[in-house]
């Protein structure tokens, strides 16, 4: 039997909001270490990797490894029925063909359960190599979401240039060109609002705004976002989910052919 119970049910609600526009279906791979989900978006351009560790749940039981193929639009609809303060439990019998979501209101007076059919998905699994990145930028996630939204009005690509002084986001298009420069925060008193850059060597790469704007749907999961860049390898946009895991998005840079 598989059962995962989370008092902070809003995390699962936010996770679905963060992936449902990019992926229509995905497999939740569960074992005794926790829940992993990895899937390419429908156009196979970007990759999403979610990890929710067992020790982050208030109760976690996984007698046998189980892979649950789900339609994420359906899961998102079900999780929309959960209150922000509800406890959410996911459970499934071993080799079951359905999964059940149980929502309990804080005062236990309202308990809802939703049973959903599972899908047989044989999605490809990709190996993500361990990579040392030339540049790593930690910044407020709301700031990054704002920059992606603003610059995508100017062009369908965004250039991210990282040096030890700071990071510059640029876009050009018919209506003109836009540049947003963020300096590295000098005195880091509030980590969550700081821009922190670790740079081995400067990097300038171009990315499709459309995908970056999909990634920023995860903004509500974490006050900070971490961008990791190296020449000619995919960008990693990571949102840490407090005390339980992370969601990482991978996108290859656009390159001159």
């Amino acid at each position: 039997m598989f059962e995962a119970r989370l008092l902070r049910g809003s995390i699962l609600k936010k996770v679905l909001e963060a992936i449902k526009d990019l992926l229509t279906q995905a497999t939740f791979d569960c074992d005794d270490s926790g829940i992993q989900l990895q899937a390419m978006d429908n156009s196979h351009v970007s990759l999403v990797s979610l990890q929710l560790r067992a020790d982050g749940f208030d109760k976690y039981r996984c007698d046998r490894n189980i892979s649950m193929g789900m339609n994420l639009n359906s899961v998102a609809k079900i999780l929309k029925c959960a209150g922000d303060k509800d406890t959410v439990t996911m459970k499934a019998q071993d080799n079951a063909d359905t999964v059940t979501f149980v929502f309990e209101s804080p005062n236990q007076e309202k308990v809802s359960d939703y049973e959903m059919k599972l899908m047989n998905l044989d999605l490809e699994h990709l190996g993500i190599p361990e990579t040392e990145y030339s540049c790593t930028i930690r910044m407020p996630s709301a700031e990054f979401a704002r920059i992606c939204r603003d610059l995508s009005q100017f062009g369908d690509s965004m250039v991210i240039a990282c040096t030890k002084e700071g990071v510059k986001f640029s876009a050009t298009g018919e209506i003109g060109s836009a540049n947003i420069k963020l300096a590295q925060t000098a005195s880091v008193d509030k980590e969550e609002e700081a821009v922190i850059i670790e740079m081995d060597e400067p990097v300038t790469l171009t990315f499709a705004c459309q995908y970056l704007n999909y990634f920023t749907k995860a903004t509500s999961l974490s006050p900070q976002v971490q961008l990791s860049m190296s020449a000619d390898v995919p960008l990693v946009v990571e949102y840490r989910i407090q005390d339980i895991g992370h969601i990482r998005y991978y996108l290859a840079p656009k390159i001159e052919d």
Binding site: M40, H44, L126, G127, P234
Partner: peptide
Amino acid sequence: KIVQFPIKVYFAMT
């Protein structure tokens, strides 16, 4: 010409 390669070009299937 600027091209966008799919992620599979960079990460091998396991």
